[in-house]
Write a protein that binds this DNA or RNA. Sequence first.
DNA 1: TCAAAAAGTCTACACAACGTCGATTTTCAT
DNA 2: ATGAAAATCGACGTTGTGTAGACTTTTTGA
Lengths: 204, 204
Amino acid sequence: MPDHHPARSRRTTERKGDVRERAILDTCEALLAQQGYDAMTVGDIAQGAGITRGALYFYFGSKQEVVTALVARTVEHLWERSRATAQTDDPRQAIAAAMRRTVELWNEHGLVMRTAIDLSLTVPEIGELWSHTADLFITAIAAVLERAGVEAGTEPEQASAMARALCWMIERTFYHASQKSREELQKASSTCEHIWLISAGLVA
Amino acid sequence: MPDHHPARSRRTTERKGDVRERAILDTCEALLAQQGYDAMTVGDIAQGAGITRGALYFYFGSKQEVVTALVARTVEHLWERSRATAQTDDPRQAIAAAMRRTVELWNEHGLVMRTAIDLSLTVPEIGELWSHTADLFITAIAAVLERAGVEAGTEPEQASAMARALCWMIERTFYHASQKSREELQKASSTCEHIWLISAGLVA
DNA sequence: TCAAAAAGTCTACACAACGTCGATTTTCAT
DNA sequence: ATGAAAATCGACGTTGTGTAGACTTTTTGA
């Protein structure tokens, strides 16, 4: 709506701060991998981003806010990615596709996802982001179960509740497997897919 | 080997320190419920136990050590309790009994169990305790699956791997449900039991 | 073009919690 | 009752946090 200059792409300039902000998040992600959340200090992040602590506080109010922003950035990816996945009517294919996608997501973003899970209790904002993400998955799983013939509803043995349990199974199994290796993750995926299929009544 | 006094039961007296130590752990558990791990300070624990910080460091080297001891104490309970459970040959009954027992454990010790899970990554000792506990459950679940006819082995679709996934499903589902209410926990239990039964091939 | 406003940065400070130390008091077995 | 071991205390040094105010760079618009 604003900005009528004809031959100009959306945002004219990229604020210097935008670059720094990205540098901060990138550094945070790297440090998270190297030292873990507790060991990582605000000074470390600032240093890695090429500024002082004082300057970092211009961008974020605390270490928690930095990590929250990092999680938000990552979760954004997940959502985009999920939206972009082709839809299938055949439950079997839908399940296979979902598991394949999930493996990719954990391979790419496992570290941040694990961090998000770990901090969900401590940092309410992150808990919010993660539980919202989980809800998306639960809804998707429930839809597949229903299409496969599982009775719809929220009672303990109906689709919604089962989808929730399956979602947590996948989350936790992948959480552990992604800490070990890609091979483990792949195996874990097979197991989860198998249980999902059985739960949907799609296996003898 | 030492101590030959005939008419004396094992430990003659209970050291004053033993009482204090228990008081510290009790206080820690209470504070954990009230404020959570991060908010809880060593000073708080000491005060709650009726001593100063300095004195507390006579018993434990750090806040983490205190919590680790608390987790160890609780986990001890779990093991005793599990050992004391009647064994059944009928898989259906075994599953029902296991789930019933699990609900009880989470009702009684949910807070500490959740704390143990949360700190597993940060505090290696706690991670150790918890993963060992999980292994016990995984072994038990696998045994039931095998007795129900699931092929034994560690490949992705065999008993061990499935048991692991089911264990994480139960852990995570109970983790969340126990934060809400006993009713939620009960429902969660039904759902998990259902999926376990299906996975064992015990449901049409 | 250029000056004022906005954005970004730095150093220094005050604070909270941690863990340690040495001195001191209490407990307890003989 | 007494001496060694157990338990307690208060004070100290350290580290990491978040804030404040002064300073520099960048952007904006007349």
